[in-house]
C-alpha cells in the first residue's frame, strides 16, 4: 500500500459527522448557555449556583471537544493527549487554589499525617 493510500484509508476510517449533528450540538450549546445565564440571574438558585454553573460549563466544554473537535470520532491517541494535559491543567489550578486559601480547611484528613511527619511543627 502506498503512503497516500494508507493515509486516505486512515481518514476514511474516521468519518466525521454531517451538518445535522453539528447543528444539533449548536442547539444544545445555545440552550446550555441560556441555562447558565438563567442560573446567574435567578436568586433562588444562588445556593446551588456554583455546582450548576460548573456542570453546565463542563457539558458545553465536552460537547465542543467531542463533536466539533472530533474527539468522539478520532483516534484515542488524540483524546489521551488532550485529556492528560487537561488533567495536569486542572490539578495545577486546584493545587494553586488550595495552596493559597483552602488547604487547611479541605485537606483536614492530612492533618494527623502531618503531625506524625512534622512533630512540633
Amino acid at each position: 500500500m502506498t503512503a497516500e493510500a494508507a493515509i486516505h484509508e486512515h481518514f476514511e476510517e474516521h468519518v466525521h459527522p454531517g451538518a445535522s449533528v453539528y447543528v444539533t450540538v449548536a442547539a444544545f450549546l445555545v440552550v446550555l448557555t441560556a441555562m447558565e445565564i438563567t442560573v446567574f440571574y435567578v436568586s433562588a438558585l444562588a445556593s446551588v449556583m456554583i455546582p450548576l454553573l460548573i456542570i453546565l460549563s463542563v457539558a458545553k466544554f465536552a460537547l465542543v471537544a467531542m463533536f466539533y473537535m472530533h474527539l468522539r470520532y478520532d483516534s484515542y491517541v488524540l483524546t489521551s493527549i488532550f485529556m492528560f494535559a487537561l488533567a495536569i491543567a486542572a490539578l495545577l489550578l486546584i493545587a494553586l487554589l488550595l495552596l493559597f486559601a483552602y488547604l487547611s480547611h479541605y485537606l483536614w484528613f492530612m492533618v494527623p499525617l502531618a503531625r506524625i511527619l512534622l512533630p512540633g511543627h
Binding site: 486512515h10 487537561l86 495536569i88 491543567a89 486542572a90
Partner: peptide, 26 residues
C-alpha cells in the same frame, strides 16, 4: 503512515493545545 497511524500535523496541534491548556489554567 509507517508510525502510529495518526497524521503528524494533527498530533502536533493537539500537543500544542495541551500545552496551551496549562497556560490558560495558570
Amino acid at each position: 503512515s509507517g508510525g502510529g497511524g495518526e497524521d503528524l500535523r494533527k498530533v502536533g496541534v493537539w500537543a500544542f493545545i495541551g500545552s496551551e491548556s496549562v497556560f490558560f489554567a495558570t
